[in-house]
Design a protein around this nucleic acid. Sequence first.
DNA 1: CATGAATGAGTCTTCATTCAT
DNA 2: CATGAATGAAGACTCATTCAT
Lengths: 224, 224, 224, 224
Amino acid sequence: MSKTQPKSELKGPDRSARKRVRKDDRPQEIVAAAFEEFASHGYAGTRLEDVAARAKVSKGLPYLYFKTKEELFKAVVRSVITSHFDTIRNEMESTTLSVEDFLKGPFLKFVQELVCSRRVLIVRLLIAEGHKHPELTAFYFDNVVARGLETLRALIDRGVARGEFRETALRDYPQLLIAPMLMAVIWRALFEHHHHLDTDALLKTHIDLMVDAVRAPQSKGDVS
Amino acid sequence: MSKTQPKSELKGPDRSARKRVRKDDRPQEIVAAAFEEFASHGYAGTRLEDVAARAKVSKGLPYLYFKTKEELFKAVVRSVITSHFDTIRNEMESTTLSVEDFLKGPFLKFVQELVCSRRVLIVRLLIAEGHKHPELTAFYFDNVVARGLETLRALIDRGVARGEFRETALRDYPQLLIAPMLMAVIWRALFEHHHHLDTDALLKTHIDLMVDAVRAPQSKGDVS
Amino acid sequence: MSKTQPKSELKGPDRSARKRVRKDDRPQEIVAAAFEEFASHGYAGTRLEDVAARAKVSKGLPYLYFKTKEELFKAVVRSVITSHFDTIRNEMESTTLSVEDFLKGPFLKFVQELVCSRRVLIVRLLIAEGHKHPELTAFYFDNVVARGLETLRALIDRGVARGEFRETALRDYPQLLIAPMLMAVIWRALFEHHHHLDTDALLKTHIDLMVDAVRAPQSKGDVS
Amino acid sequence: MSKTQPKSELKGPDRSARKRVRKDDRPQEIVAAAFEEFASHGYAGTRLEDVAARAKVSKGLPYLYFKTKEELFKAVVRSVITSHFDTIRNEMESTTLSVEDFLKGPFLKFVQELVCSRRVLIVRLLIAEGHKHPELTAFYFDNVVARGLETLRALIDRGVARGEFRETALRDYPQLLIAPMLMAVIWRALFEHHHHLDTDALLKTHIDLMVDAVRAPQSKGDVS
DNA sequence: CATGAATGAGTCTTCATTCAT
DNA sequence: CATGAATGAAGACTCATTCAT
């Protein structure tokens, strides 16, 4: 009563639209909408109301599934991270291709596609907000970064073991195989309107040069 | 008249003296303080009151020099960008070293230092907020990115012209020389606490591999 | 920027009314306004916006002095408690009157006035909200309740020592001298509109009866 | 038909049986749950969802029986008030004990028990919220306060008529017999953790003193 | 010039209430 | 009847910005 309760005697617009799409995927829809908003405006710049609007639900609904804005943010990050990287990791480990062919084939393809997909936006998000969410950063590090680098290192070592590659410091810094992806993502986000960059070619060039750099001497003749 | 000692020695022994001395670089101090805050908390997460506090000025003073928060932000970005890159660019253009030696010497040194300096934080800031400030992004692109890439390309072309390097697509994607810097910056910001990365070695490895990749066949013997 | 900053280009009503009353008693004014609101609507039922409106300040100002609603509430309680009870306590300890005369004179007067004053509203407030603010309750207990009861007990003991009173359990339960005050406060708050109660007479009757009850036998003749 | 066993034995073995059994007292269970919640958190501080949870029903069910939160609150107050005071009133009117013995016996017992029961919490609730619910306060006044005081006054008058008591103003302020109960209730709610108070002894002391105060001079010998 | 009290629009979050199922 | 997902009004709190002193 009194000031605690809404005085409205006349109620909202269309009460019938509710439950229309209702499913147990409501949380997913909200997470999807939140992803777009977070990706566009950053954490602080995103208003939960806009997330709700984009998900076509009421302002209060996200709070039914996510206790706070931060919870929602974490859910967003986790949902993007989860399982998207398992595929390529599995391929890496089970492929019968030569390492060079794998890098120039499936791996390049994967990275090229990743860079064009909406879910790389999560990378920018983490770059921007990660340090405020240590828990999340740790999660990302453990599930994506650490495992990804490990697999890459194993791949390089295999190349060396198979006599494809010479021994180089690359195995100690597999991050170098990934670095151009960051460049591509950031370029697309910031500079694409100023100057077009063919990220596919960028990535391909990088792989080609890297392979050239580490290729074992005797295999030189095989190339052309 | 301007830099003479204050005439009133009666009030505040050295307080007025300090004031005088600081008067001219007040904006700079505010920008410096703002840089730290923006770098730590992002644009939206930074409170102007904290900036003022860090700069040891009153809450209202920043508004004397910068009409809005965004103006201040732009000033911050500009101040970091300005002139820090001219030096290396000049060196690049006037050096007498071989391109390989230049890359492995002054250039590597520059990048390694940049990565450790506080002013790379601006990179993360731009990654995070750049798309909301097109004007700023354009300014950064024109003054840093475009000119930097141009100079790098010229350097590579010089290497080719001098017979040091073979012709590769690297000249079309000089971003590849910079990409590991992004990796280094981001790693330090997000993952350093999880897993140490020797960024100096990372950067060196990258330059070494890149040079190996593009070095002209006959120049192999010339190196040492 | 963007959604973080107010878009308003046209600003509020009268920007000149500010600072009019400005003094360092602003906090006091806010506390006073808050007292009225809390007393009227309880803790949860009070809107800080109404407090601000009553204090004729903007919605945000209370937060400049009180970090949260609860802080303000505590300040309200403390401000009412502080020092109002010292006077009567001092009188109690330094009076030259007989205990009976003191109880029927200054003490009765004090209680009668207290019951009519606005600051007893704090009692109702504490009854209603106290259990949610243990810190505050402890503060009130230490500063008002414990000290008040102690003084009352000393007074009764003095009456016994002087031969005015016989030894009764009243000294163990000095709360009984205060109980009718609670009745008076609560009655006025809840039932006054239903049925008038002469609280002055109620309180006087209670003191008279209590004194009759504990008066030493030999002093009986002295009464009339 | 109404209380026969459910016909469908197939679904839910005894789940449906329980449902049937509970159906009739659902409102009561909800009121009971609501009482606990209101008593603990006050009106505004109580969430209907918690009430439902405590009553082990769904969030929407209370609305089937009570149109609004306020209706439920009223039902709570009424349910506690109703009929609990008739017993003692009847006793008061039909007892064959002397008034003194009645006060020191059944009446004291009743008050002591009341103070320890959960249903006195309603008193604190009314103190806190009563002024916002005039209707409810009126109901409480008519059914509990007015009738209670009337009966007490009649009791005192009977004491006077029987020559047990002298004529005192107590008959005009029977509230004084009740006042210590308020003290006891409030003390238990707020200060018990700070300092234990033997409320039984408090109440007994009060009755003893009051009776001493009003006892007729000649009846002194009659007592034992 | 410099200060910091004051403003008020905006955002997160809660919860009474409704209603499709 | 019973459920609980969904709604949306309201309130706590923040902070960019202003301006009297």
